[in-house]
Design a protein around this nucleic acid. Structure first.
Lengths: 363, 363
DNA sequence: CTGTTAGCGCTTTCAG
DNA sequence: CTGAAAGCGCTAACAG
């Protein structure tokens, strides 16, 4: 624990009676360096377990080798997995990852982004808070020359590289499946529609009805304040209080789903016998839940990898003007026990075996 | 996206015809600086949206303002929550957090730790992989003067600040509770006992039996290869294959528990009617599971806060020799529906209402 | 009140 | 093959 001061290149130089530049060269296999001095330098370096100071290097090279990622929170399966994907991609390119949570607070998002800029991260990946409706802080970042990639949650009107999941499509698949299995009165527990992703899920729900000529009943849609299990409990309770007849529920995500099943069970409804239920996310517990949860799987890990890849590409083509990339990944419906299954269409829906979290997934 | 080169203090100085130091002083409210020049400087700084280069500062001050945290993985509720606690603590002290995952790989752990040392993090929080049995890389870090705190997973024989949870006690509580509720043949699905934490849970299981004069049957203990739900499925299957009579299972954690309930259900056992089940961790889904999971809650967020706090204290008393701190936090048994409840002892066990994840918890 | 100087640790011309 | 010098961006004595 004693702060013995790290040995520097100068220390070694002095001890050997050579110049710092010689030491530097020796340490980097520079061609024009005598084998002898090189040996001496390397020996000393090892003896003192010399460690190059990356801070000095960063200052010199004007790049820190750090990529920042800003997410609303890391405790959900979704973001934690995205981060894993990003981590794997950037570290294979020699970058470190600075992970920050905004906690869905806009002010925090601004502050953290500012912090990152100050510490001179080389690039940033951002999934904005659902309160983020002004993008000046993003623009500011762009202006300082730090490339950024928006992922998962879109920022309408803000131009940047973006990697999203087609939530609309996932929701559409889910609801159309419910319709095909004979459900007529399908409720939707929507998340805060300030989040574009959740708005899209609602739209998917609506259009699946429309395309299948099923009337939409606004009394079957309940808007939740958040998207945790507790929010699910609240929303589901609210839904049941309306005393509407329902035979299916499409919930905005799995967390809300399990809150919902809880309420349904307490009120004597059986899933899926009385009510079919489909969630979204395919959380790690979804397959082991009882009944196991039908849900929409998203290529989360891949989302992280791709976002990071796009950022790295920007580094490679630094300066060159390039149009922004806009990537949309496709989710997949996973049918399990929480929804009734109709025989004839099973084959087209059932996915072979998708255990928990596939680390690598083919697109 | 155009790299316009960030404006520096020198740019401002030149433009104003003053020296860089004057600019620096103006920007820092130095007492001896004329109101006029200060105004000029500030105006220009704003005009060019000047941003101090933290890398230069770090190099100068020999502190980066970054704290590193190294965990086996971030996708579990446990570590994600620890990180949240750490994040909140360190950011309130003005530090940034560099989060790294070892993926339970020893080599990766070594490499990442090395990386952190190179980027001159000011301190490190570590929860080692379960393969970590040599601590030379930790020693090396200590020698370079970077303080480190070990949390959650102990490193027997390695001296450092440590913050742990009393897993032994948690397990003991759980098993004693099962015994008190009348269970006679309590099985244990143990995790890899290379992890001290899991070894402790096993010990708690054993000693609770011993203290209550219940014979221990080795055929009721199954050692799982990992601690995911899939591992739980495998271990539970193995357990049932032994055709031993059992009336309760204490599983090493909640993830394994839900894999276990899955297998039990498939084999026609009802929980808790036929078999009582208790897990460990109190994951966010535990209370909404069916049946809701009896489990052992750990002060996870607090664990993160405290670990970070201890590290910050080291900074404050830098250099001063101090004995290492060894903190052990107490877990609490949470009784829900997956275990039979006996009337008379309920009161001493039942906890009022403990929804999901308490953000702040009194010790 | 302000400028000059030196230096954090390192690399990289440019001269030897 | 090696050294001297300059500089990345900034601050903190030390002089004026």
């Amino acid at each position: 624990m004693q702060q013995t001061r790290q040995t520097t290149i100068v220390d070694i130089a002095n001890q050997l009676g050579v110049s710092p530049s010689t030491v530097s060269r020796a340490l980097h296999d520079h061609p024009s360096i005598s084998a002898k001095t090189k040996r001496n330098v390397v020996r000393l370096a090892e003896k003192y377990s010399y460690q190059p100071n990356l801070l000095a290097l960063s200052l010199l090279n004007k790049r820190s080798g750090v990529i920042g990622i800003l997410v609303p929170e890391i405790t959900s399966y979704f973001f934690a997995t995205v981060i894993s994907g990003v981590q794997d991609m950037v570290s294979s390119a020699g970058y470190k990852l600075l992970i920050c949570q905004s906690g869905e607070s806009f002010e925090e998002e601004e502050k953290l982004l500012q912090d990152m800029a100050l510490s001179r991260v080389d690039g940033v990946l951002i999934s904005p808070t659902f309160r983020t409706n002004s993008f000046q802080h993003f623009e500011r970042l762009k202006k300082t020359g730090i490339p950024l990639v928006i992922f998962d949650r879109d920022c309408p009107g803000f131009e940047a590289d973006k990697v999203l999941v087609d939530s609309y499509d996932g929701a559409y698949q889910a609801v159309e499946y419910l319709i095909k299995t004979g459900c007529k009165r399908i409720a939707h527990i929507a998340g805060p529609i300030a989040i574009p992703t959740f708005k899209q899920r609602l739209d998917g729900y609506l259009n699946a009805h429309y395309d299948n000529n099923i009337p939409i009943r606004s009394e079957l849609i309940v808007y939740s304040n958040g998207f945790s299990s507790d929010d699910g409990v609240e929303a589901a309770t609210q839904l049941l209080d309306r005393h509407e007849k329902i035979d299916a529920i499409f919930a905005v995500n799995d967390a809300v789903s399990i809150g919902t099943t809880h309420v349904l069970r307490e009120n004597g409804y059986r899933v899926p016998d009385d009510i079919s239920l489909v969630g979204f996310d395919d959380e790690s517990y979804a397959q082991y839940y009882f009944p196991s949860l039908s849900t929409v799987w998203q290529p989360v890990y891949e989302l992280g990898m791709l976002s990071a890849k796009i950022l790295l590409d920007r580094f490679a083509n630094r300066g060159q003007l390039q149009s922004y990339r806009y990537e949309v990944l496709k989710p997949e419906l996973v049918i399990r026990e929480s929804s009734r299954i109709i025989a004839e269409s099973t084959s087209s829906y059932a996915l072979p075996n998708r255990p928990g979290t596939p680390l690598v997934h083919q697109a």
